[in-house]
């Protein structure tokens, strides 16, 4: 579904992605973790070309995203993206946030889009909030709406860029639950997160990134109980027992 072939990216002198090779199969859930500044957010943003790459290839659903001939809008329409800061459209109601892209990008009519939106809102447990505006919702609720917005395009794959990092602790669970349900429904997912509980329970594979390189790639069970790399060991130690 997604394949990175020796991908490089530089921000001026900073080599943020240094030879990334990675595959995500259909229906697979891959969690990407790593210390801050390791390039994991950049990595996930290159999949739908919110960030361009300097070298290499990224294939999504059989299309090379870095090829100038690829229709990026059509590709992005098939790739859902959930942001750390939700990025809901503040001037639109919850319902309109979800219906806007199916209507404008896919040409769906208002009645069908509304119906779809309500179904999705039920799925994320927020049908009663359809007429609210984003500023009236908690962070957790906003993120669930953002997930529904991504799903409204009926994407082939969903990307999550630290979806719970901006949330208060008591709201993390409700978002992770929605993501877990989504994974169980068979959605292909690539998730950048520090939520190791989610990784352990839901992921098929954990990818550890540091300094723009994938330095460990393993089944969650192996990754958490028996990490190979020193950097990964240190990272897990800091994450699991931050005081020591």
């Amino acid at each position: 579904m997604i394949r990175f072939n020796n991908v490089h990216k530089w921000f001026k002198d900073l080599h943020v992605l240094n030879g990334i090779n990675l595959q995500v199969q259909q229906g697979e859930v891959v969690v990407v973790c790593g210390p801050s500044g390791s390039g994991k957010s950049t990595l996930i943003r290159t999949v739908n070309q919110l960030e361009s790459i300097n070298e290499g290839e990224i294939w999504v659903d059989g299309k090379n995203v870095a090829d100038p001939k690829t229709n990026l809008n059509a590709l992005r329409a098939e790739v859902g993206f959930v942001f750390q800061h939700f990025n809901l459209y503040p001037h639109l109601s919850v319902l309109d946030n979800i219906t806007l892209s199916p209507m404008k990008v896919k040409g769906m009519d208002r009645a069908a889009a509304d119906k779809l939106a309500v179904t999705l809102l039920e799925r994320v447990g927020l049908a009663h909030k359809k007429d609210a505006f984003p500023a009236m919702l908690s962070g957790g609720q906003q993120q669930r709406v953002a997930i529904a917005r991504g799903l409204a395009m009926e994407p082939r794959v969903m990307l999550f860029d630290e979806p719970t990092s901006a949330l208060d602790p008591e709201m993390i669970g409700e978002v992770l639950k929605v993501m877990k349900d989504l994974a169980e429904s068979g959605m292909t997912m690539m998730v950048v997160t520090h939520e190791m509980g989610f990784a352990r329970e839901v992921a098929d594979r954990v990818v550890f990134v540091d300094h723009g390189q994938i330095i460990e790639e393993a089944h969650p069970e192996h990754f958490f109980t028996n990490p190979q790399h020193d950097r990964a060991k240190q990272f897990l130690r800091q994450l699991l027992t931050p005081m020591n």
Binding site: L50, A74, F86
Partner: peptide
């Protein structure tokens, strides 16, 4: 994040500005 969100759902540049 607003333009990123708009681009991520497949909006063209004119749609992003308009909506």
């Amino acid at each position: 994040g607003q333009s990123a969100a708009a681009l991520a759902v497949g909006f063209t540049l004119p749609q992003m500005y308009r909506h």
